[in-house]
Structure formats: C-alpha cells, structure tokens
Nucleic acid binder design. Structure first.
Lengths: 346, 346
DNA sequence: CTGTTAGCGCGTTCAA
DNA sequence: TTGAACGCGCTAACAG
C-alpha cells in the first residue's frame, strides 16, 4: 500500500472532507444526512468541500452502522412474458424512486429449490424486503415460510389466503368481463384456452370464465390448458378449430390468443365473422394486441399500477404499518376479434 | 437497547459462532471464506456452529473491509422490448452465477440526464462494474466518459469505435443476410422499414440493407423510419402498402414487421404471394414470430449469448485482463412470409 | 494450524 | 451548534 500512502488518488472519505472544510467528520455526517442543527455557513463550507473532492458516502460503512442496507430484492422469472417483466421493471423504478437499491434475481424455473436459493442470495445481500413476482403454487408455499426469512415479502398475484402481503389485478373480474362480452354478443359455446393451473392467474381466469358462464345460464364446456406461449396457443388452437360448434374462445393471455388466431386462420375459420367464424378474446393487452390480424379484443391489466402498488405495500410493511391487499381493476378493450355469431345452416 | 441486551434475538455474528465453536472469530472467517489451512475437525466444529445459529456473513462489513461490494449494476430501459429485456434477464442470471449481486436500474428515457443519474445511483451503491444495455448516441456519449466513473462499463450493442468494452450481435451481417434472402428470391424493389437512427442497431441494420442492395447491383430506395413499435410499423406500413411497385420489405425488428403485416393485410396485399403480394423479413425472432399470419421470416439474434458474453467481458475487465469485443453471429430463419415475386401485369 | 491486533468509513452516543 | 470517543462486523497482517 506504499503507493496509496505516497499519494495515489484514493476515494475520498468523510475525514478528507472534514479536513478540507476544517470541521470534524461528524459535522460532515450531519450535512450528508440533512440534519438541520447546523449553521448555514458551516453547511456551505462542507458542501463545497464535498463538491470539490467529489465525495460520496460509503454505502457499506453506512449499512454496517445503521443496520439498514437500503436495498430491496425482486424475484422474477427468466421467461420474458410481457406482464411479469413489465411489473418487474416498474418495481425497479418505483423502488429506486423510494430511495432503495433494487437487486434482482431471475429464476430459470419456479422450483422450490431455485426459489429458496434466490431468497438465500437476497438475504445474504441483506435486503430489507422482497417482492416475489411469479405466483405459482410452489412459489406461494415457499413465500409462506416468510416468517423465517426475517424480511417482509410481497407476492404479486399471490393468493390472499396464503400470503401475508399481496397485490394484483382482479383476475376473476377480468375473466368474467371477457367472457361476459362474448355472452352478450350472443355466443353460448365459449371455449376457454386456459393458462397453467399451478399459476394463480391461470386458476383465477378459469374461475372467472366459469362464473360468467354460469351467470348466463350456460354450461361451461371443458377447457384446454396451455403454457402461456404462442406455441401452445397454436397447438391447442388447431384442435379447437376442428370443433365446428365452437363460436368463441376466451384465451387466458394474448400470446396464446395470437397462436390461436393463426391456427384458426389456417383452418379457414375466420375471426370473428363468417359462417364458420370464431370470436376471440385475449388477456393482458400486450402492445401488439391492437396490430394482430384481426386486432384483438382483450382484457387490459395495468401492470405498472401493480408494480407501484407492490412497492407501496412493501414500504408500509417495512414501516410497520401494513396495508391491506387491494386489487387493481382490469378493463375490457373491445377490438375487431369479436362479433355476434352468424346463424349456422345445419 | 435494553431489550436487546436482555436477550431479544439478535442476528448472530461471527463472534457468536466463534464462541459456540470455541475458536477465535478469525478461524470462523477462514471457514466462511473457504481457506484450506484448517484442521478438518476445527472446520467441522465451526460449520456445525454456523448451521446451528443460522449464521450468515454480513455483506456490509465484508464490503467495508475488502473494498469490494460484489455487486454489479445493469442499466436498461423501461420499454420492454424483447431483445433488450432478454439480454437484461440473462445478464442478471450470469452475473449472479459469477458470484455477484446484480442491481438494476431501468431508464424512463435514454436522456443524458437520466443516464448520469443512473450511473450516480449505481456508483453510490459501490458497484464494481456496469453493463449498459441500450445503446443510443446519448448513451454512448455518456459511457465514453467512463474513465471518470471509476468502474468498467460494458456497452451492449455499443459502437466499438466509441466504447471501450462492448459486445453485441453482428447487426450489419444480419441485415445483409435478411436483405440478400429477398434479393435471391428475385426481389429488386426492397423497402427498408428502419429503426430509430440514434440507436446503433437502427443504423447498423440500415447499413446492412444498403450493403446488400449495392452488392446485388440494386439501388436502395429511400427507407422509412419507425420507433421499433408495432404501432409505427402499422402506420408506416399503410404508406408502403400504397406503393404498388414494392414487392418486399425488410423491417428492422419483428414488432414493426408485425404492424406491417396487418397494414398489408388491410390493404389487400397478400404476404407473401399473389399478384400484389409483398414479402416481409423481420429482425430478432421474437417467440411469436413463428405464429404470425403468415409465420415471419426473420433474422434471429442470440440474446442470451450476448448477455453471457457481457458478463464475461466485464469479469475480464475487472480482473485486469480485458478481452476484445467479439460479435455474436445472427442467423436467418426462413418461414412463410417470403417468396419469389409474382410477375406483374402492367 | 490458530489467535491477536488493528483498522475499513460511518453514525451514535455523549460532552462541551 | 460542534467535537471526541466508540463500535458496527469483518478481513488482513502478523505472531505464535
């Protein structure tokens, strides 16, 4: 370390600022932390010294003494679906605005092992709280043990019955609205192209579809289950396309709807019109939804609201004044992929 | 703090482990850091004590004394396009695998001010290095001043001439391949639906298109410039659809191609066939590309390779053994949206 | 192979 | 309103 001693440029520390300003390091600390019992002249001197030296407080030292890392962790998943990744980005922005550093870890798969690993990783970093984005059953189970984690955990789209703090969109209401729209157009044979049932969203949307069917006095036919991907929407769509009685499909997300649109198109079944036509409703309102062929009627989720709300809840929990879960309302966006069914000639 | 002293459960520290194991805290440190000059029996004792207490090292204290935060920062953008966000997720995974904590900040817009802010934020956190994902001119300019930042910065899709460390896909080669494919099918009037020209990707793809046109002895017609979104692809596509002479379009990304497909469809111009048909090539190969109507021929980028490579380069830079930039090769994926032009009856 | 000592840079006492 | 002393939990350097 001879070089350092000899004057190689070191990162300036509080003591350097104190020396330059002619005060104690303690006074510098007060300026940095915005305390008000300081003579304006003193403050000015210190601020000038800070500027001149380009001083910045050492986060590690501060964290060590305050026992607060000013960091929160976010657990997302590696798959880049529009919804979760938008929530993730919003959380990062909101977390930073709230004065936190945001550390992320993306899971390859939502297995118990990977999840526990991620939590370990974040706890090692000393995060003050965690937001968990992908709510599968396994994730919820792990999150349930949060008392042991020592830090509050907010689960996005979690099951209120199984997690302490949660935030999300009213998935059931959204699915009901999407299905009801089809019912009101006159459809009665409405198939549900469902999402994976180990996801809370997948289950809730299935439930909403059923609710709306029963409410209309219709018997929900069986549903088919995909994996959120366009590929699965296409594969399952081919089978749906063979069923001439079907006049409408409510898909659990826009990607699957997209694959479905192509399957229908290939099968020569128009969307929405024509004698063998099929109406399609999606879920999410991805940015491309309005530009599909045809433009997709879908249920919009305000992912940014969810992300912001997640941070609000986490902050409240950290402050010791927990807030109740509150659902964000989804909104039906009607475009060109839905229309009344055309009379069929038997 | 009487409660604490009275025995309220504290987070265990190294000294607690040492006491329980009957060794010095230094020995515990050695175990924790995996040094090998330890008697197996001692190590076992310590490990048992660690397990029993649920001890975990305090990152802040370690960072303070080692002057290493074990954290790297990633700067991305709030817009959630497939490419950048895939790279972002991969970087997070690769960074963590390399033993780092990964702190992210997503920019609302890529203005100079926001960028400087993000860098400040990350430096305050004491990150050891930074990966900057969105390479616009402003971003590159800010990155250029990295000598002042005190930490190495890797720019994804940066301009090798203007940034120290960079990694990316050979955009020019990709655009050449996409355009050449159209040329080889027999098209000569190939329009380029370009990306924003302040993005290095946007410029490089334009350049590749031009190169391929000249190489084929064709005169590149003027290009139109979008903003990467499906909306802009649709708007510009409507104008392109009016030009009956155009038989092919090379779009700078898949989202714009998606919007374009709809514009062409609305204008009654088939893709790819028919007398007024238009062939379309995209760029990126988003997961939905294979399920558009028709399935999109496009240039695939290996975003995960880019993300992994970014971490490799950053690690090398941190280790003081910088590696040269190396481009990832893109790959043409031929699907159904391209075909030879049909003879026109004038 | 293991223990002792001395900080890392900062905030929290207290006293002045 | 300001300063001095102390310690946060850990690793580095040395001694044994």
């Amino acid at each position: 370390m001879i070089e350092a001693a000899a004057g190689a440029r070191r990162v300036p520390v509080m003591a350097d600022v104190a020396r330059l300003a002619g005060v104690s390091h303690q006074t510098v600390s007060r300026v940095v932390n915005g305390q008000d019992n300081l003579r304006p002249a003193t403050r000015a001197k210190v601020e000038e010294a800070i500027r001149q030296l380009g001083y910045r407080p050492n986060t590690a030292a501060r964290a060590l003494v305050t026992r607060r890392s000013a960091t929160i962790g976010v657990i997302g998943s590696k798959s880049g679906y529009w919804g979760p990744s938008t929530v993730h980005r919003t959380i990062q922005a909101a977390g930073r605005e709230a004065g936190y550093f945001v550390s992320s870890v993306n899971l390859q798969s939502l297995t118990r092992e990977e999840l526990v690993d991620a939590v370990e990783h974040l706890r090692n970093q000393g995060v003050e709280g965690i937001v968990l984005i992908s709510a599968t059953d396994e994730a919820l189970e792990v999150a349930r043990a949060q008392e042991q984690w020592g830090v509050p955990v907010v689960v996005v789209e979690g099951d209120p019955a199984r997690t302490h703090w949660t935030v999300g969109v009213d998935q059931v209401a959204g699915a009901e609205a999407g299905t009801r729209h089809l019912v009101e157009l006159g459809h009665s044979d409405i198939v549900h192209l469902a999402g994976p049932q180990e996801w809370t969203e997948g289950r809730a949307r299935l439930q909403g579809w059923r609710n709306a069917m029963y409410a209309a006095g219709l018997r929900p036919s069986e549903h088919v289950t995909g994996d959120w991907s366009a590929a699965s929407g296409f594969e399952l769509g081919r089978r749906i396309a063979e069923r001439e009685d079907v006049t409408a499909v409510f898909a659990a997300n826009d990607q699957m709807a997209l694959g479905l649109l192509r399957a229908l198109s290939e099968a020569g079944r128009g969307v929405p019109g024509g004698e063998r036509g099929v109406s399609v409703v999606g879920f999410d309102d991805i940015p491309e939804a309005a530009y599909l062929i045809p433009p997709l009627t879908t249920v919009r989720q305000d992912f940014e609201a969810v992300g912001r709300r997640a941070i609000e809840i986490l902050r409240a929990a950290l402050a010791g004044t927990p807030e109740p879960a509150r659902l964000v309302e989804p909104e039906l966006v009607v475009r060109a992929s839905t229309a009344p069914p055309v009379e069929r000639n038997p």
